[in-house]
Write a protein that binds this DNA or RNA. Structure first.
Lengths: 340, 340
DNA sequence: TGCGTTTACTAAACCGCTTTATAAGACGGA
DNA sequence: TCCGTCTTATAAAGCGGTTTAGTAAACGCA
């Protein structure tokens, strides 16, 4: 703060022209002869003039800001996403505000309301639960919004998602080929589009064999612990686990380790995301990798470069490819050593 | 956007009073008799009036926003920090903007300039290199700034740091007690306050034995790989490694694994941060834990509640305690199996 | 010389809120 | 009845830009 803030008026006075002239010239809406132009340029330089963004925003009715509504910034998946979006936005001269919701509808609504009052230039919305209709309505009230990572029912906005079905397929395939026939799923809630897509893909990869059991909850290590405990208690012949996120995998592995369940000897495991350092885990964890950075960049690019006049654009869904990173957490099933 | 935006004027008209009255009443600067008050309240409710933040900010000359200048949001340490700060700021009704610098001075300057133009209510600045004097000057031009995680030379601002010296001490102690007498340091650059504090603590923990070698670079996995390679090449009797961040540890472990160097059999290792899932690594990594969430919260609390009129306050340094999390990456030195 | 057309620029309204200075009317007391 | 004092407001000037509508002067040309 506290520096020599000069206003347009100061510049105008110094250059001996009107504020309108300076404003229009500076914004490129006015050609000027060399003399006048030189005086203005010099005045701007001398005074180190920088337009006041608040005044600009009030006048223009926009904010040069993109709001990022995100479940949890501390989660590496989302923080990578946020990093990619910030980088892309900064390149285009946009600022980025952060709003963590912890997947709570009230926080989501508060964040959306906040963003809406602030007249943000755009919204990127990420959630991991199925929000109430009000959330979708509020998203729809933005003139520019992108839904990222997880579909939101009722939202009329372009989507940037990873190919969840393909991810499930790759996981199913690698498990099936290793000989597994009974697989359980630990993942996000069942009403999520990503969950059903992954389960569908998993079944396809497993040659039509559906997972025996699904354990679903939030994408958090704590949920992973709880679900893993339930899984171990109820386990009935499953030889492998498909886990819907690295966060859940962390919780699962903690429980497995505490209970002496070995991976992959007792249970094979495939994770989803590959944003944590799974390659250094014991054992290194096979995972479906999401193109996190690309997803973030694309969200911002679509927000800023999309053809928002075209109603078709709102229907767009960009499905980004995933790939399987094979490591050491999948082996042939070993029913002998398996605990029940 | 696109909703029924009503202005103060609309409310005033509907309540049949002047805008000044509505404004002052709404801001609590005017007591009103029941009749008038009721009409205004009703008008506000009917029109769903929400003040335009841009106008408010232009008028008041502030922004209800805190700028977070951070090296890399994708780095789990910083994303945890950012999450804690966002949560704390949101509780107080402040928004948070994000500016990633990748430790580049030009980006730092750009971010500071940006924040300064936006008349932010406060700044939290984090860097991991020794920035040029211009950065400190710009930080000093803010009326409210906090320096977090790493000291910045020349910045007149309260600091929130972890107790790096104590962290080094704890690492040194556990290594010394395990029998190590020759230790190398892989960490952030030498000109950083944190580095010298840690090395000093390390020496104290090692009963005065200085580390044989220091390998320093950015806190990034890539640097960790490079430094680990150099360390292995030049290693001359060191039996343990003190690594300055989880990011570096990731790189180090990648190289060790690739080259068949076993932890702790060949080299013992203590990491710093404990923000990655080190407990699941092979082996689980002993680490000095930083109180990340507390650091973030304190930074925001000091920013918002600090006594900024007191010049002493700018001299404050809050040193938060660290603790050692013992796991399996430290054992007695084993010079026989050690590679050279 | 007179008229239309550029060229070069400006006055003033507006964005929506805050705030200072001020005023009208009611009330109470002398 | 007149004056001072509350009470209950308000007019108007910012904050610092953008933008529309318009004008004065110079220019070209018949």
């Amino acid at each position: 703060m506290a520096q020599n803030r000069h206003s347009l008026k100061d510049v105008a006075k110094r250059a001996d022209v009107s504020v309108a002239t300076v404003s229009r010239y500076l914004n490129g809406f006015l050609e000027l002869p060399d003399g006048t132009r030189g005086r203005i340029d010099r005045a701007v330089a001398d005074l180190e003039y920088r337009p006041n963004p608040h005044a600009r925003r009030l006048s223009l009715g926009r904010s040069d800001t993109i709001a990022l509504v995100i479940p949890d910034i501390a989660n590496p998946f989302f923080s990578r996403l946020a990093a990619a979006m910030e980088a892309c936005a900064a390149e285009r001269g946009k600022m980025v505000t952060l709003h963590a919701t912890m997947n709570r509808s009230d926080r989501e609504i508060a964040a959306l309301e906040n963003a809406s009052h602030n007249l943000v230039d755009g919204l990127v919305f990420i959630t991991n639960h199925m929000p109430p209709a009000e959330v979708a309505e509020r998203i729809n009230s933005f003139s520019r919004a992108i839904v990222l990572d997880e579909d939101v029912k009722g939202a009329r906005a372009p989507r940037v998602l990873c190919d969840n079905e393909q991810g499930g397929f790759l996981a199913g395939q690698v498990l099936y080929e290793a000989g597994h026939r009974k697989v359980a799923y630990i993942g996000g809630r069942e009403d999520l589009f990503s969950t059903s897509a992954r389960l569908e893909g998993l079944r396809r990869g497993m040659q039509g064999i559906a997972p025996l059991r699904s354990y679903v909850d939030d994408h958090a290590a704590a949920s992973g612990r709880e679900l893993a405990q339930r899984f171990l208690k109820e386990c009935d012949g499953e030889t492998a686990l498909f886990v819907g996120s690295d966060e859940l995998t962390v919780g699962v592995l903690e429980v497995f380790r505490a209970q002496g369940v070995r991976v992959p000897e007792d249970i094979s495991l495939v994770s989803f995301d590959n944003v944590r350092s799974l390659h250094l885990f014991a054992p290194a964890i096979t995972a479906v990798e999401q193109p996190v950075d690309t997803m973030g960049r694309r969200a911002i690019e679509m927000l800023l470069d999309g053809d928002w006049d075209d109603p078709k654009f709102l229907e767009t869904t960009e499905l980004l490819p995933v790939r399987l990173i094979e490591r050491q957490s999948v082996s042939a099933p070993n029913p002998i050593t398996r605990k029940t």
